[in-house]
Amino acid sequence: MKKRKIPMRKDLLSGEMFPKKSLVRIVKQQDNTVAIDPTGKAAGRGAYVALDPAAVQKAKKKQLIEKAFSIKIDPSFYDELFAYVDHQKARQELFGDQA
């Protein structure tokens, strides 16, 4: 049986490569809004973030997502992203890696 290729993506916050399924996609849509894309299929420019709540806090401090998308982002988005990443990480630890 042929081994499947695992798509890799670069984490915006650390610069490391990870399997796509272990990252969360953030998308900048045409109307310059930024949203979390849990499906990974939304239209727009995407960036990937690892499931690390500490890295999200660091990104908020350094405004890394704003720099990546070249737009001003509401601080509440970082709180939403932190909550989502924290939830997904806890879920992954609880249920294991269900791909």
Rank of each mutant, 00 (worst) to 15 (best):
S14F: 02
P53F: 12
I71F: 03
K2I: 05
K72Y: 05
K89E: 12
D74K: 15
Q92V: 06
G15K: 08
D52C: 11
P75M: 07
K28D: 04
Q57E: 15
K60V: 01
F77G: 01
K60L: 11
E66G: 13
A68Y: 14
A83R: 11
D37L: 03
D74H: 15
K10I: 09
A42V: 05
A59K: 07
F82T: 07
D86G: 06
L64Y: 03
K2D: 09
E66N: 13
D79L: 11
K2N: 07
D97C: 00
L23R: 05
E93H: 11
M17Q: 11
S22R: 11
G15T: 09
I36S: 04
F69R: 05
G46F: 05
I26H: 02
V85D: 04
T33I: 04
E16V: 03
H87Y: 11
Q92L: 15
A55W: 03
L51N: 01
A99L: 13
A43D: 13
M17F: 12
K21F: 09
R45G: 00
L23G: 05
L64K: 14
K89C: 00
F95I: 09
K72W: 02
A83M: 07
D79K: 13
F95C: 04
G96V: 06
R9P: 07
D52P: 03
Q92A: 12
Y84E: 12
F69N: 04
A35D: 06
K28W: 05
K20F: 01
R45P: 01
K5Y: 06
M1D: 08
S76Y: 01
K67T: 11
S70Y: 05
L81T: 02
A90M: 10
I26V: 15
Y78E: 08
D74N: 15
F77S: 01
A55E: 14
N32H: 12
Y84D: 06
R45D: 06
A42G: 06
K21S: 10
G40Y: 02
D97F: 07
F77T: 01
K61N: 07
K62D: 15
R4E: 11
A43T: 11
I71Y: 04
D79M: 04
A47G: 12
A55M: 13
A43Y: 05
N32S: 13
G40N: 03
A83C: 00
I65C: 09
N32R: 14
H87T: 12
Q57L: 14
D37A: 02
L64W: 03
Y78A: 09
A43M: 10
M1K: 10
G40E: 03
E80H: 09
A68W: 01
K20D: 01
F18P: 01
Q29S: 13
A35P: 00
P75E: 10
A47M: 08
D74L: 07
E93Q: 14
P53E: 11
K60W: 07
Q88V: 13
K60I: 01
D86I: 00
T39N: 11
L51A: 02
F95T: 10
D86H: 09
Y48V: 10
L64T: 13
E93V: 03
S70H: 14
P7W: 02
K21Y: 09
Y84I: 02
I71R: 06
R4H: 07
V34P: 00
Y84H: 13
G44T: 08
E16I: 01
V49T: 07
V56K: 05
V24I: 15
R9E: 13
R25Y: 06
M17H: 08
H87C: 01
T33E: 10
V27Q: 06
K67I: 08
S14Q: 02
K28L: 15
V85L: 04
Q88P: 00
